[in-house]
Amino acid sequence: MSIWEYANPAKFMRTTDKVLPWLVVSATICVLGGIVWGFLTPDDYRQGSTVKIMFLHVPAALMAINIWVMMLVTSLVWIIRRHHVSALAAKAAAPIGAVMTLIALITGAIWGQPMWGTWWEWDPRLTSFLILFLFYVGYIALWSAIEDPDSAADLTGVVCLVGSVFALLSRYAVLFWNQGLHQGASLSVQSGERMSAVYRYPLYLSMIGFALLFLALVVIRTRTEIRKRRLAALQAQEARA
């Protein structure tokens, strides 16, 4: 039993068939729980009720980055071991990542308007997220532009690799260009000062919820891609026969 068994599309479909309902249920519970709990938290003495936005903004931003990392890993698996499910999972994850980035950007802008007095500031974190969004858009556009599925997987894989290096590079280049307005990490293990438990636990729940939601969606979308691929293969077979 090794993880590579799931590279077999049939095995992947069978397993996810069983896992998916649980995933959907737990994702729904955690996301709704996290958001509702977050909505019911008391007002912050400085931020007022806008602190509630954090329960959307922070998990979305967290997922935006982690989804790109997941795409990088699955692209590498495709390039090195050539498992089709891996490439399809990367394809399936990209739109979710783009939406997460968009949510992080928009909720940030809505929050920034009353708090910083501006919708948008060319702050390193904000700018990096905009750049990340551009990378997602380019990646998705490339997938949809190439007809041959294997070439598309290869080329998007290479672009994802190069893009990862440049996304990281831009992150630090931007830091050089403008010092920030954005607060530092709100959940840090080392720092002595921590967010009060009133906010911390709903935030954890919301983060878990977003992660589960991503997993559920990526499984559904990967299954879609596998089915599309199977249909195309069957049709090609008949055309030849």
Partner: peptide
């Protein structure tokens, strides 16, 4: 190999230019 590669090319390449542009 793409038929309408020009537009996609700019979409892919311009974000890669950001560090060079900044410095």
């Amino acid at each position: 190999g793409l038929r309408r590669g020009g537009l996609l090319l700019s979409l892919l390449v311009l974000p890669l230019y950001i560090p060079t542009l900044i410095f």
